[in-house]
Simulated assay, not measured.
Amino acid sequence: MTALHTTTTRTFAARTHGNESVVHDPLTGLTHRAGIALGSGRVRLSGTDVASWPEIHPAAVHAGVPISVCWSPLVRCNLACPYCLDDKSVLELGRAERSRIANLLAESAVLGVDISGGEPLLLRDLPELIDVLVAGDCAVSVTTNGTHLARRTEALATRVDAVRVSLDGPDAERHDRWRGAGSFDYAIAGIRAAIAQGIPTQIQTVLLRSTARASMRAMVDLAATLGVSGVTFLQMLPIGEGAGLADAEQLTDDDALALLTELSTTAAVPIRLRTREAAGGFTVVRSDGQIWRNQPGAHAISSLRPLHTAGDLTLTARDGSA
């Protein structure tokens, strides 16, 4: 659900599937059915044009591999968000194994890779991993808590296609309640630095029952003030450490959509909602090198198999659709 669209030309990834071209947007994570004929690989397109093309669920593409994946190469984080999706007991592979996985993702037909965590900006080898993925024609985004973003924007600016910064509130009082003192100021400094370097940047915020209604409009206003490319509101998933908050803090998809409807006609920046239904079936490569899939409705996540070859990303009837 989008209010406005940016006119900026930026990098996307495209593939031809059957008689149509599909485009992955690294800024929003959305898949679009292209309105024009496109080749395969990284392409520069108008954000306005892409946003005007129909959004499609990746499953509707019927591709042999996922359209995009979330790669969480580490579980380490400098913050401790109570709704974190990570299972901190998952093994974290070393640098050589991270390089191997990056090369396998680059060899596959995956269009987009969102590098998450944990906190990916803690990885010294992050620029090299991005370079490998870009060389494989992937569109690459990084999802971060923003606390280390300001000091790493120069290295990211010539590499990454989009940055998604997680905020839990539109001001220090509300954000730091969840993430710790000072984290809001660091994140805002990181957002400003990324924008100054020309990195397409958006805010992501998890919807919680206790805070959503009081903070959503202020979050959109903050986004407009900062000059980010949009805000994505994420439905809380009862996965990992976040399972403990699910009963108290989850909104239904219908309730979340209703809240977005109240904002959609007046929002000063593009806004969208990722429902739990939309998160179902998404593919995650976790820090242990295992391929995982969100179950339908994203109420749980299941391990499929180790990622040993690019062919391991191929979806089977048992795995479900992309």
Rank of each mutant, 00 (worst) to 15 (best):
15 R>K: 15
319 D>E: 10
6 T>I: 13
270 P>A: 13
291 I>A: 09
159 R>I: 00
236 M>F: 12
258 A>N: 06
178 W>M: 11
129 L>C: 10
304 L>E: 03
99 S>C: 10
24 H>M: 14
317 A>R: 13
179 R>N: 07
212 A>Y: 03
115 I>Q: 00
311 G>Y: 07
267 A>H: 01
8 T>F: 03
214 A>S: 14
38 L>R: 01
196 A>I: 03
84 C>M: 09
55 E>M: 15
221 D>S: 10
16 T>L: 15
255 D>W: 06
9 T>Q: 00
136 G>Q: 00
53 W>L: 05
42 R>N: 10
178 W>D: 10
282 F>D: 15
11 T>I: 07
255 D>L: 04
102 A>K: 01
248 A>N: 08
190 G>T: 01
48 T>I: 08
90 V>E: 10
22 V>I: 06
140 V>Q: 05
41 G>V: 05
287 S>H: 02
74 L>M: 07
176 D>R: 11
95 R>G: 05
226 L>Y: 07
158 T>Q: 13
114 D>W: 06
271 I>C: 04
127 P>D: 13
260 L>Y: 05
5 H>R: 07
301 I>P: 00
40 S>C: 11
103 N>Y: 12
124 R>W: 14
108 S>H: 02
94 G>N: 08
215 S>M: 14
34 A>D: 02
252 T>V: 10
158 T>F: 15
216 M>H: 00
8 T>H: 04
297 G>K: 05
1 M>V: 06
174 R>I: 11
191 I>Q: 02
265 T>V: 08
98 R>F: 11
85 L>F: 15
198 G>T: 07
2 T>D: 11
16 T>S: 13
189 A>N: 07
219 M>C: 14
284 V>W: 12
318 R>M: 15
205 T>E: 08
83 Y>E: 05
115 I>H: 03
132 V>C: 14
293 R>M: 09
26 P>D: 10
190 G>P: 00
41 G>D: 00
73 P>F: 11
24 H>S: 08
125 D>H: 10
75 V>L: 13
142 V>I: 06
206 V>H: 03
44 R>K: 15
322 A>Q: 01
132 V>A: 06
56 I>V: 10
290 Q>N: 14
60 A>T: 04
65 V>G: 09
14 A>S: 12
305 R>Q: 12
38 L>T: 06
141 S>N: 03
36 I>Y: 09
275 T>V: 06
129 L>W: 01
304 L>I: 14
160 V>N: 06
282 F>I: 13
295 Q>P: 02
290 Q>R: 15
154 E>K: 09
276 R>H: 03
105 L>E: 00
302 S>P: 07
197 Q>V: 14
259 L>H: 12
95 R>V: 05
51 A>D: 03
318 R>Q: 11
175 H>I: 04
206 V>D: 02
59 A>W: 02
5 H>N: 12
20 E>K: 14
150 A>E: 04
198 G>P: 04
